[in-house]
């Protein structure tokens, strides 16, 4: 468990910022907390709050959130071979706890070279600790958001937390391309209705990232 402390500290500011941001934009405390326990996906929760605040219809918000969380399919696929021996109750439980951070810690444990058949307990421990931290810091953020006056510009916590999340994922040229294309579309489409600019931006980013990856592959093949 000691190995997870940095990770728990890492999600604590996101949880707090999320709670405070949601309250600042006018969401009720109950809905803010419910989203943390039902969705349990930091980036997508921020996106949902922003879209709710801008009056985007519910169906489009659900679509955007699912698009943001689609990457969990990757995690699901790479964890699957390690849990084949577990009964389905375990798999349903681990799936609920499968976030970016739990995935990172869990896969580290699975990668270690020993024959332990109880590594899923480690996964569960990490996931549960993260879940508890997320719920608790959301609650702290809700209290904080209600106490802080609007003039403090707490809504700025959204771009700030996303900046902190962005720099670690900008590791390759295709990732830069994906971010760049999506950013430009989101700015150009600022006036588009129903959150369509965000969905178009994400789709455009995926295409941009794949195109650059393909080009780089060809370059390597040509030399």
């Amino acid at each position: 468990m000691r190995g997870q402390l940095p990770l728990l500290l890492g999600v604590a500011p996101f949880g707090t910022a999320y709670g405070a941001y949601a309250i600042e934009t006018g969401l009720s405390g109950g809905l803010t907390q419910a989203m943390s326990s039902m969705v349990f996906g930091g980036a997508s929760q921020f996106v949902a709050v922003q879209l709710i605040a801008s009056g985007v219809p519910g169906g489009m918000i659900v679509l955007a959130v699912l698009l943001v969380n689609l990457r969990h399919m990757l995690y699901s696929a790479s964890v699957a071979p390690h849990v084949d021996h577990l009964d389905s109750r375990w798999r349903w439980l681990l799936a609920y706890l499968l976030t970016d951070e739990a995935y990172a810690v869990g896969m580290q444990r699975y990668g270690r070279d020993d024959e332990s058949t109880r590594k899923h307990w480690f996964f569960f421990g990490a996931g549960f600790a993260l879940w508890t931290t997320w719920q608790a810091t959301t609650a702290i953020g809700i209290v904080l958001g209600a106490a802080v006056p609007e003039s403090w510009s707490l809504d700025f916590a959204l771009p700030l937390t996303f900046i902190a999340l962005l720099t670690p994922v900008l590791t390759t040229r295709p990732a830069f391309a994906a971010a760049g294309v999506a950013g430009v579309i989101a700015v150009a489409g600022f006036d588009w209705p129903y959150g369509t600019e965000l969905i178009t931006a994400i789709a455009g980013g995926l295409v941009g990232g794949m195109l650059v990856a393909r080009l780089l592959e060809k370059e390597v093949a040509a030399t």
Binding site: V68, L166, L170, I185, G205, L206
Partner: peptide, 11 residues
């Protein structure tokens, strides 16, 4: 793989 960078800068 490209979902996260795209979402983040788009917001």
């Amino acid at each position: 793989q490209y979902v996260m960078p795209a979402v983040l800068l788009a917001i």
